[in-house]
């Protein structure tokens, strides 16, 4: 019974090889020729900006918590206008495995994977990126979202001025 399976198993690989011998080769002449990865390709990480040009990252530590290899570190701080932001933000790319979990965890669309896969250095320390190195001046895959237009702490909009918010209540009134 198994004889047929075995024969098929022996012949089929030869057939596959034979068939591919007449196909065009997929190898390209990198680096002269470059492949364009799809937009959702997971390579070098960037920190994006909101449509108003502000840093999107609110230093919530979710990406660093999600990162399975612990290569993200940062320090959150408070700006004079109450904005929470990253005083510094560091990714050690020599440890990063480009799994994309950080981008998935990010509630503000700040951290995103970019398709820039050409990423190698001679020195390990050069693979350690600081905030300046990570920040780009666009919104990456989403150019619309601004987290602070939705958060209740009123940094961009006045308190109670978000789309889904009512103006602040008057605590002292007795009216129903």
């Amino acid at each position: 019974m198994n004889v047929w399976r075995d024969i098929k198993g022996t012949v089929q690989p030869f057939w596959v090889t034979l068939r591919n011998m007449f196909r065009r080769p997929v190898t390209i002449q990198y680096p002269e020729e470059k492949r364009v990865p799809p937009p959702r390709y997971r390579a070098r990480i960037i920190l994006t900006r909101d449509p108003d040009g502000g840093e999107r990252c609110v230093a919530c530590y979710l990406c660093s918590a999600a990162c399975p290899v612990d290569c993200i570190s940062m320090q959150s701080a408070e700006a004079p206008d109450g904005r929470r932001y990253a005083a510094w933000f560091r990714i050690n790319f020599s440890r990063c495995i480009y799994c994309g979990l950080c981008a998935e965890a990010c509630p503000t669309w700040a951290i995103q994977m970019s398709p820039d896969y050409e990423f190698s250095k001679y020195a390990t320390l050069d693979m350690v990126y600081e905030k300046e190195d990570l920040l780009v001046d666009h919104g990456g895959k989403d150019n619309e979202y601004n987290y602070y237009r939705h958060a209740g702490i009123g940094v961009v909009n006045p308190r109670g001025g978000n789309e889904d918010e009512a103006p602040p209540v008057d605590v002292r009134t007795n009216l129903p």
Binding site: G152, R159, N162, P168, V169, V171
Partner: peptide, 21 residues
């Protein structure tokens, strides 16, 4: 519907106030 909001108070050097929560 719209979310209710409040104005916070400055409660001094030790405590932050965020009544909306």
């Amino acid at each position: 519907g719209l979310k209710k909001t409040y104005v916070n108070q400055d409660l001094g050097p030790f405590i932050s106030h965020e009544m909306n929560r």
